Structures are given as C-alpha cells and as structure tokens.
Computed example of a mutant assay.
Amino acid sequence: MKTNSAAARRSERIWVPAAIRRIEADFQRSSDTHLIPLPLCGFPGIDLYLKDESSHPTGSLKHRLARSLFLYALCNGWLRADSTVVEASSGSTAISEAYFARLLGLPFVAVMPSSTSTEKIAAITFQGGRCHLVGDPLTIYSESQRLADELGGHYMDQFTYAERATDWRANNNIAESIFQQMRLEQHPIPTWLVSSAGTGGTVATLGRYVRYCARPTLVCAADPERSVFFDHYLSRQRDLCQHECSRIEGIGRPRVEASFLPEVIDAMVKVPDVWSLAAMQELSARLGRTVGPSTGTNLIAALACMAQMRERGEQGSVVTLLCDSGQRYGHTYYSDEWLQDNGLNCHAERAALAASLDSGQLPRELPARWQIAGELAAV
C-alpha cells in the first residue's frame, strides 16, 4: 500500500537514485550489438545488414525496451523498493523485465498467453520471475492490471509506454546505433530500415529518429497474420481487434496498441506466417546459427524493399533486425512435428525463398500471399 509519510518519501529519495544507478551500471557493462552483413548474390549493389539484438544480456531486442521502461517508471515515481512489477507479454519483454526486476531486488510477474513457448517460460523463471498464463490474449491487459492492484505493485504496460519511454533522439536508441555502425559502409545511409512490430515502440523510434535527423531513409514495418497493425495502417481505425493470438511470438497484436504510430511508417508488409518460418529457417542456415521467427518476418519484409530497389535499378543498403535466437523455440518453430500439427510446414516455401535470394527474383507464390501498403505498394 502506498504511503505519503515523510519517512517513506525520504526512503524513496534514497532508493530510486540507487536503483537508477544499478541500471545505468548494467548498461555501462554492456557493449553495443553487432551489425552483420548478409551477402545475397541475387541483389548486386544492394547490401543487407542484420542488427543482431540477440547478443543483449537477456537475448533479445526487448532488453533495450525493458531498460527504458524501468528507468521511465522509476523517474515517474511509479516504482518503490516494495513494488511487485507486473507485465503483459508474449515472452521476450518479460524475460528482460524479469532480469531488471531481479537487478533491483523486486518481485516480477509475467502475464502471458498460454501458447507461449516453454523455453521462454523457463527463461523468465530463471531470471527470478513467475508466469501467469491466460487463454485469451485480449485478457492479458486487464489481468495484468488486476494482479498489480491485488499485489500493491506496478503494471509496467509496455504496449502503452514503449514509444514514450525510449529516448528516440539519441540515448539508448537503436536507430542512432545503426547509423553510427553504418558510417564506413559502401552505402552508409540506409535506403530502408525494416522492423516488425510487437508494441510498435521500435518502429516508432526508427521513424522518429530518421525524421529528427533529416535522413532520406524510409521505414518499413512488418506484420504477421492474426494481427491488426496492417489493417490499422490502412484504415486508421483504433477499435480493430481479433481474438486469435499471433503465431509469430513477440510480434503482431490482437488490438491496436498506443505505441504503434502509423504516421512515422512509410510502408508495411503483412507476411504470411509460413513464409516467416521459411525465412527463419533459411536465414539460420546462411548464418550458421538459429534465429527466431520474427527475424524471418523481418527478412521477408526486407526482401520486398530490396525487390523494389532492384526493379528500379537502385543501389543502396537495407538494415533489418535479428530480434532473438532460435534457441527459445526448439519445441515449436524448430520442431517438424509442431509445424505439421499447426499447418505451418514450410519446406516448399523455404526452397523457393533460397532460390529467390540467390536470383533476385521474388518467389512466384509470394506476391499473391503477402499484403503490401505505402511506399512499397507497387512491388
């Protein structure tokens, strides 16, 4: 229970700066993530790069978001030494938030869809958190708030605060890091930045930063099936929703989230799930290590950008995100039995994609399956 006593306020003034210092010290111990070139002989003059976010201490892009959310909550006076942190998450954000909660000595509860992979649940538990599973993905929001109220804690609410917690001008900014790392490349100013949307916070950061710095770079957002973001991009209707959970963990949402800002996005690609998984598998083979399914979604959207550049005779660079490792999905996306049971067998699509990356020609079946909007509409 919150208290406004003088003793409590004095205690908070001591604890909050110490908590911020712990988070900042953790940041100082961390190095930046790698930018990996991926040569593709089918696209001469067009360079593709992967920003490898799997190398963060908690193994995913969401490490950046979790750090920003904790600093935002601390500086807003929402977290105290006795707070229980609660978050609605499909897994990766919860893993990262559990890490920071443990760093501050705070209990952590993740409210997640029951379809979340066992590997992600185990990773949250390893970081000291506990998991509260729900059947309907639309209930994770209300259930998170209910638990926070019941426990006298704080609901972090990544889907509302992701775009505002991150400093999109500079500090702790993935966009600034990309442009810094591209400085000595053949095409240092990317033609496209490509990112899938979970909360929408990363895409918002990319879009805002290129506008703030007056870059000519375009931003493309990738969306999986069973998500409303693409339809919202087209219609701007905020009341869109659907009750099926995205089959690509970590991205896509059943409702329009406050952090998704279509105004800063130049194009969108809605990627069929089977093609996301085909791209995940093919990219893993080419890198020599496994990647997660949202990275496959990103690769397909990047392919749309590269295909347009090739058609127009343009040279340049495209940067997308390697969101997390495939190690978290051994019992799902890397299981042939699981793929078969879920109607996601992607052997034919992977073979077609491999030929496309080597030839520069889009797989014949893909343009009929994906949906494209914005600056890519002519692809």
Rank of each mutant, 00 (worst) to 15 (best):
S114Q: 00
R183Q: 13
S55N: 13
M156F: 09
M182K: 05
L71N: 02
R169P: 06
V256I: 09
T139S: 15
N298Q: 04
T84C: 15
V319H: 01
L61C: 11
T125Q: 13
A162D: 06
V86L: 10
R215L: 15
T332M: 03
T332Y: 04
A101D: 06
E12S: 13
A304K: 01
H187N: 12
F230C: 10
R146M: 13
C220R: 00
V379Y: 00
G200I: 10
D136I: 08
S11K: 14
C75P: 01
L277K: 08
C131S: 05
S90Y: 08
N171A: 15
V134F: 12
V194F: 02
L133I: 05
Y155K: 13
V86T: 11
S96I: 10
R312T: 04
E150M: 11
P363Y: 05
F179C: 09
R215T: 02
A204W: 00
H132Y: 12
N345I: 06
E337R: 05
A197R: 02
E365A: 15
R289Y: 08
D82V: 07
A94L: 10
A302D: 03
R183F: 05
D223T: 09
A368N: 06
S96H: 12
L133E: 04
R102Y: 03
A222W: 04
G77D: 03
Q327P: 03
A352P: 03
N171S: 14
E163F: 03
G288C: 11
Q181W: 11
S177E: 10
C75M: 08
Q242M: 14
P113E: 07
G45I: 04
S235A: 05
V274L: 15
R13M: 14
V318S: 01
R215N: 01
C305M: 05
E119Y: 01
G313M: 01
A204T: 04
H232V: 07
V134L: 13
A8L: 10
A355H: 01
A373V: 07
R211M: 13
S359T: 12
V194H: 01
A110Q: 07
A348Q: 14
Q340W: 06
T295F: 02
P188R: 00
N345L: 12
S325M: 07
W338Q: 01
E311Q: 12
G288H: 11
N173A: 12
L357Q: 07
S246N: 13
P190D: 03
S144H: 14
R238Q: 02
A148L: 09
Y209K: 04
Q281D: 12
P216C: 09
H56T: 15
Q327H: 08
A304G: 09
R364M: 13
R10S: 10
H243Y: 10
R183K: 14
S30A: 11
R238E: 03
D336Q: 08
G91N: 04
W370M: 15
A377S: 03
L366C: 07
P188S: 00
F260D: 05
L261Y: 01
V318F: 00
C213Q: 08
L376Q: 00
